[in-house]
Each structure stands twice: as structure tokens, then as C-alpha cells.
Design a protein around this nucleic acid. Structure first.
Lengths: 148, 148
DNA sequence: AAAACGCGATTACAAGTGTAAACTTTAGTC
DNA sequence: GACTAAAGTTTACACTTGTAATCGCGTTTT
């Protein structure tokens, strides 16, 4: 049983992580250059974010000369999965299906992605329930409507 | 062109919204009862959240006797869609396919949901690109790897 | 060696969030 | 009409987040 430490990566921090994840490792100069360009951030801002990410243990450092080299301590896919599961976890379960549909409408997926999803859905259909109930209220949800 | 006002609903506020969305409208006593139970919140906490939601224009009120009746000003599905689009919007586009797959693994979908998604995907496949590139770095992404 | 520059660390500071207590107003009750 | 209970309003307070400036130190340059 993994004692998964809940890692909260903020939006701004996420931008930093994406770069380190993609590069595998990087130093603050390189990260700063990219984010100065992409986000218009000052180097001080990036330094703050890097510091917070190290404190949060999302990144680790290794000294190289006068500077640090930053490496991810969490896998990008894991972070993406927790973030999405956290979000969907507090949405009305009855409406996640539609939300997923609306989301997919806005995403660009490759043919391969789509094929994989189709296979996955075909399999999932075998054990899928007929309906999914709303879980927003203690009782059944549709109950007590407009009791106010 | 709708001037869509960016509505930021926090996690705690979301819990309140779910109840009002589901009931259609409600008063603070009813909401407090449910959340005292589900979240362990004091009535003062719920009052604060209701106040913030009214100020943010996520809810509106109508006086009834000594109390207010709260009604949503934003549709639940719209709020869910913005929240999910906002999240996926800052994830690596190359990895959203896998993320979606991992997410679906964790969701309960009805047979109908699945059928709808399958139809949607079949249609989307027609115009899908062969691959989706990573958009985490300015250049091509896989470029400059390990330059540090 | 002195000066300048790059890097990490410390400090800043307002806005948003979670969580609530205290105060005030209002609507019934005796 | 005075009192009380419930609902709304104000105040509180620590933590997170976005966005930096500044400080101190080691390294590079003149």
C-alpha cells in the first residue's frame, strides 16, 4: 500500500513542471527563458515557483557548478491522472458522461488515441450499469426537489 | 459574441453549488443541514460560502419571509464543462489521450453514456490527425532534450 | 584584486480559500 | 411590546497562490 502523498501543484507551478517533465531535467536559466517567453514571467517569479516545487517535493535538485539542475520527482502522467481524477471526483456523477462528451469535443485526439478509447469503451460496456445516479444529495437526489 | 465572465468556483463552493443545482433552489437551512452532514461544516461556513457565491454571481437570491432562497445563475453543465476544459487546456496535449483513458478507467459510465461516446469517437476518427504533438515547449518539444 | 553577473534564498504583498465566531436584523411567540 | 430563534452580515485568521524585488554569495571578467 503506497502512502501516496497528496501533491498540490498550482496552475503557475504546472507550467514549470511541464518544462521539466518534457526536458527530463533542466536548470533555472533555461526554464526562465522559456517561461519569460511563453508567460511573460520575470526570472524572480520562476525562482519562486522552483523553490516551492522543491519544497513540495515535486522536483529535486542536484548541484552542478554554481547552479542547480532540477529533476521531476513525480511522473507527469501520474500528476495528470491525479489532477483529472480529483476534478471529476467532485462533479455530479450522473453528469460526468455528458461532461466527458463535451470535453472530447474540445480535444484533439490522434487516430490511435481514438482507437484505444474505442476498445476500452467496448470493454467497459460489458459491465456498465444501465444508469448512473446523481450523488449530489444524501438521499436519491431527485427526491425532495423544490422543497424550499 | 458572448462576453463570458470567467467564474471561478472553488472546491468548497462547488459543494454548495451541487446542492442548489440539484434542488433547483434552496434556502440556507436546507443547504446547511446537508453539508453539516456530508462535510462536517458549521452553518457559519455555509453562510460564508453562500455569500461569496452570490457576490460572484453564481447564485442569486429572492427574499421569502426572513430568509433568502438561492437559485443558480450558471448552469451546472456549463460550469462542469468550463472546469474540465480549463484543466485539460493546460495539460500536455500529447498526453491527453492517455489521461482520458486513465480517467475513464476510474469513472462509472452508463451503457447509454458509453454508446454515445462510441458514436462520437467514431465520428471524430474521420478527421483525426495521425499524431498529436507535445506542446510543452516553444519548439517541437522533443528537441533540445537534456541540453542542461 | 575589484567589479559585475548569475543563481539561490529571503522578504513582500495583495487576492483567494477554508473555516468559522461574533454581531445584527427580522420574524414569530408569549 | 419584549424575547428568542433563525437568517443574514461583518470580522477573523492562517494558508496558498501569483507575481515579484532585494539580498547575499560564489564565479567570471577586466
Amino acid at each position: 500500500m503506497e502512502a501516496t502523498v497528496k501533491l498540490e501543484i498550482s496552475d503557475a507551478e504546472w507550467e514549470v513542471m511541464r518544462i521539466v517533465w518534457t526536458l527530463g531535467e533542466s536548470n533555472s536559466r533555461q526554464i526562465t527563458e522559456i517561461l519569460a517567453d511563453k508567460m511573460g514571467w520575470k526570472s524572480a517569479t520562476v525562482k519562486t515557483l522552483l523553490g516551492r516545487l522543491v519544497k513540495k517535493q515535486a522536483l529535486t535538485t542536484r548541484k552542478e557548478g554554481n547552479a542547480f539542475i532540477y529533476t521531476p520527482l513525480v511522473a507527469e502522467q501520474d500528476a495528470m491522472d491525479s489532477a483529472t481524477r480529483a476534478l471529476f471526483g467532485h462533479l455530479c456523477q450522473m453528469k460526468v458522461g455528458q461532461t466527458l462528451a463535451d470535453l472530447i469535443d474540445n480535444l484533439t485526439l490522434s487516430k490511435e488515441n481514438i482507437a484505444d478509447l474505442q476498445a476500452q469503451l467496448a470493454d467497459k460496456a460489458k459491465t456498465a450499469p444501465e444508469t448512473v445516479a446523481c450523488d449530489c444529495l444524501p438521499d436519491g437526489c431527485d427526491a425532495m426537489k423544490q422543497e424550499a
